[in-house]
Amino acid sequence: MVRLPYTGPVAHKRGRVVLVTGAGSGIGRAIALRQAAAGDIVLATDIDLAAAEQTAKLADGACHAYALDVRDPEQWNALADTVIAGFGVPDILVNNAGIALGGAFLEQSPQDWEKIMAINVHGVVHGCTIIGSKMVQRGQPGHIVVIASGAAWTPNRVAPSYAVSKAAALMVAESLRTELAPKNIGVSAVCPGVTRTQLAANATLVGAASTEEVRSNFAAVQSRYSFATPDLVARAVQRAIRFDLAIVPVNFDATLAWVLHRVSPGLMRWICAIPTMELAETTARVATDRLSRISFHGQV
């Protein structure tokens, strides 16, 4: 069947099988609930099975819970066999599971880096490889979504390993998109800005940052600068699937960071070096205003 331009490979398919990782809370739960409400068959996975089961109970539609540690390819293979036996090959895979790790670059240990990369990058690679290969073997349209982050293009003095891991996840999506496009399988990277989740509260903090006061401040900053809700990100996922979009920044802060990163990487690095969020935000808004006037009015 010939599909119209600007529509995703599975945009109009009904009763799609959607596998979501990290679906026990936050963005993953919002994605699972929204897809179930849209009539999809959702497979909600999480390392915490009880949390995934709670998501399934909250769903207005078909939603099934499974335990999955995304770091373990053996668990991925076992899950794939179980899912395919019960529902067939997933039409959509949403790689959402992720963690945050705060602390200065020089204070993070090799073990800290291994932990965050194992989940935020290798977990995505395992899912894309194992489920993606099943999609290719099936020979039918499909779609893979990677939940990256606006941090992917934001040099970061607060959580550098998180930014690095999300930049890597973004490139996984972009590279895979070029490979799977001829097979009619779309790949999208959805990049939220600061979102109202428990990511900061549950983050691992290291070095000088590893105090409860810093954790509280970290969570407060996330709350104050949260321009997006989990459901807003879930809607962005639906948009990415519907229109087969390559990269989808979510809300003001992620879009601003994307624009500044592309227009003036040096300016972006300078803003990110400012030690306080208030100063950084003011500087970013002034820079955006000036850039918009240069771009749209031809004068400063």
Results as ranks from 00 to 15, higher is better:
2 V>F: 13
3 R>N: 12
14 R>V: 12
18 V>D: 11
23 A>V: 10
29 R>E: 14
38 A>H: 11
44 A>V: 03
46 D>K: 15
46 D>T: 06
54 Q>R: 15
55 T>V: 01
63 C>Q: 12
65 A>S: 10
68 L>H: 02
69 D>R: 10
72 D>V: 08
73 P>M: 04
73 P>E: 06
77 N>L: 08
79 L>W: 05
82 T>V: 04
83 V>L: 07
88 G>P: 01
90 P>G: 12
90 P>R: 08
94 V>I: 10
94 V>A: 02
98 G>H: 03
102 G>E: 11
110 P>N: 10
117 M>R: 04
119 I>L: 06
126 H>K: 11
139 G>M: 07
143 H>N: 12
144 I>T: 07
149 S>H: 05
165 S>C: 08
169 A>V: 05
170 L>S: 08
171 M>N: 14
175 S>W: 04
186 G>C: 12
192 P>V: 03
202 N>F: 01
207 G>D: 00
208 A>C: 05
209 A>I: 00
213 E>H: 02
214 V>Y: 15
217 N>H: 00
217 N>T: 09
227 F>L: 13
235 R>S: 08
236 A>I: 03
236 A>M: 07
238 Q>N: 10
238 Q>Y: 01
239 R>Q: 14
245 L>R: 12
246 A>S: 15
247 I>S: 03
248 V>F: 14
248 V>R: 11
254 A>W: 03
259 V>P: 00
263 V>E: 13
265 P>D: 04
269 R>Y: 00
272 C>H: 04
274 I>D: 01
277 M>E: 10
284 A>Q: 12
292 S>F: 14
292 S>C: 08
293 R>W: 05
293 R>V: 06
295 S>C: 10
296 F>Y: 11
299 Q>T: 13
300 V>N: 07
